[in-house]
Nucleic acid binder design. Structure first.
Lengths: 343, 343
DNA sequence: CTGAAAGCGCTAACAT
DNA sequence: ATGTTAGCGCTTTCAG
């Protein structure tokens, strides 16, 4: 591998000048810079990241924590993050937090402490107090998508408001008998999103003066299959039948659509269905949803952390932890699975 | 950040001994090792990756190239790779090759040359000659999933055989009028998988003495929506109608299933459908498919590269490039979308 | 089995 | 604007 002295020799300058010319830190005359750059290019020189990191303390690398790699939502956010980071010349090292507690611990106690990264982005991770503390001890910029977590900088979408919006849409269309597919009321309180979405659903009903009916709740696990099963229950059992279904994720909404179709219900004539997320399949299924722009979330997190890094570098730190959570946008997308209730 | 001398001081030994005790390279008495380990643990010491890499030339980090992050197949392979690497203490830095040619170039010319990784795994990337050459110049172990590429170590599934197997299944069930959804014959030859699958399909038909019929080919783009559209064409237009559909991916097969249902065909009574891949939704849709175990592919690639690294380290390099491509397993999974043709 | 010391390849004062 | 030089925090001979 060609090293910096070789470039220096070819350009007829010192290694310090090569470093300055190539990194853009410190002044170098235009003519020397040109000479250095051409020498570097012709030799195929690229700065060694470990040598540079060791000397400068900067790695040009961001650690990204994800809970799942193979689920649409997370991989889409990650995709946004990856492209934004790469655009700005940063590498990304990926930490996939698995169910294995021991392995998860090791990410916080070992992997992240190798001084391999300049900052950390945590994508929709439900962080324990200890984990949050480990992150803070890193003394690195951290951006969490999700939360809000008062001890970290967060980008968060207001899940209560999102669910309220979806439900209000149904109410506006005249629906009263609206079922809920998502977290059961006694759901694990560690995982907040499903609970928030249920709360938003209930708020919208309450605002409209519609009493909640336990028989219209059906728990499911956020997959297509889970939504399918839940909808089968809701639509198949005798007694009160909903005219609309609120599904706490698009995947479950799609499952519900499939179930309705299989039972012979026409959507949206006999049944309206609304989801949440902005899933890529939503368009195909003509699904009405509240889009939360996951790709954009990933990009924003990347930009936020790089901005913080640059500000820190320039000596004007912004984005202190503990600040107000930054709010992420969302939008109701009305497509073909919801319609006015026929009287 | 606590450094190695602190640990050395606490344990009452030299930094060299700390290094040896913690890395396991070179001999250290059991009692010293124990003292060092406890000092390290109590101080929360973790080796600095840049310092260690600079001194040793080893990074404990593998670069992973993927063409898409947000498509099921690739993110599943990646998931397998990530968990296997993490299990063995390796970090993974992710390079998402986008459509942007310039950015793609920069991955090969710059990002990968930063000496940040000990090896590279390329997941289903169609590498150009120049790119292959850049990879070889890195002088690092490289494993490509896909190919085969005679200039690289590859793990490849025999796509021709896979498609043949799926088609033979249909033939065995008595089908003659079998449609093909996938690459059109004049498809971009740069991207091999769709073409291989079409060839396997044709071989199976030829073996069974069934002439290929152009009207039973419908091109599609490997998405659910693409499969849906293609199946609508095949099943909706007047003239000869297939009794079975071979879809070159599970996603297209699922689209075809949905289209069939919408047109009122019963599956498998009126129409058999087979896919390829082993998609997570296959079970839900009762889809007959040829599974290629993407999670396992990712794990195998990780294990292969780590084995190569260890062998190299131990001075017994194996897995030279140019070797025979290692074959990946696949298996016909017969579920509910295929049945014997009714006469 | 352990310690001393010489780098690994770069960056960042400090000079000039 | 550029060069000199002292590290950055480890690993690895080389001695002992």
């Amino acid at each position: 591998m060609v090293s910096i002295d070789e470039v220096a020799r070819h350009a007829g300058v010192s290694t310090a000048t090569v470093s300055r010319a190539l990194s853009g830190r410190g002044h170098v005359s235009d003519s020397t810079r040109a000479r250095v750059e051409s020498a570097a290019k012709s030799l195929g020189y690229v700065v060694s990241s470990s040598a540079s990191s060791l000397a400068s303390g900067r790695t040009r690398n961001i650690g990204v924590l994800v809970p799942f790699l193979d689920r649409w939502f997370f991989s889409t956010v990650l995709s946004g993050t990856a492209s934004a980071l790469m655009r700005r010349g940063y590498d990304i090292t990926l930490y996939n937090l698995t169910a294995d507690r021991e392995q998860r611990r090791s990410v916080f106690e070992t992997f992240l402490r190798r001084q391999r990264v300049d900052g950390v982005i945590a994508i929709s991770i439900e962080l324990g107090d200890e984990e949050t503390e480990r992150l803070r001890e890193l003394d690195l910029p951290v951006i969490a998508i999700g939360g809000p977590n008062p001890r970290l900088s967060t980008l968060t979408v207001d899940d209560v408001a999102v669910a309220r919006l979806a439900t209000e849409h149904l109410v506006t269309l005249g629906h009263h008998d609206i079922a809920h597919i998502g977290a059961s009321p006694e759901f694990d309180i560690d995982f907040h999103i499903p609970t928030h979405r249920r709360q938003g659903f209930e708020q919208a009903l309450a605002d409209a003066g519609i009493p909640a009916r336990p028989s219209l709740y059906e728990p499911a696990d956020f997959t297509i299959e889970g939504g399918f099963r839940a909808a089968k229950q809701l639509l198949g059992r005798p007694g009160e039948r909903p005219t609309a279904i609120f599904a706490a994720s698009d995947e479950m909404a799609i499952g519900a659509l499939l179930a309705a179709r299989e039972l012979g219900y026409r959507v949206p004539e006999d049944l309206s269905v609304v989801g949440i997320d902005g899933h890529e399949l939503g368009e195909f299924f003509r699904l009405t949803t509240v889009d939360q722009f996951p790709l954009g979330q990933g990009e924003r997190a990347a930009d936020a952390i790089l901005d913080e890094l640059e500000a820190k570098d320039a000596g004007t730190p912004n984005g202190l932890p503990g600040e107000e959570p930054r709010r992420l946008p969302f939008e109701l997308i009305v497509r073909g699975t919801t319609a006015r209730l026929d009287h």
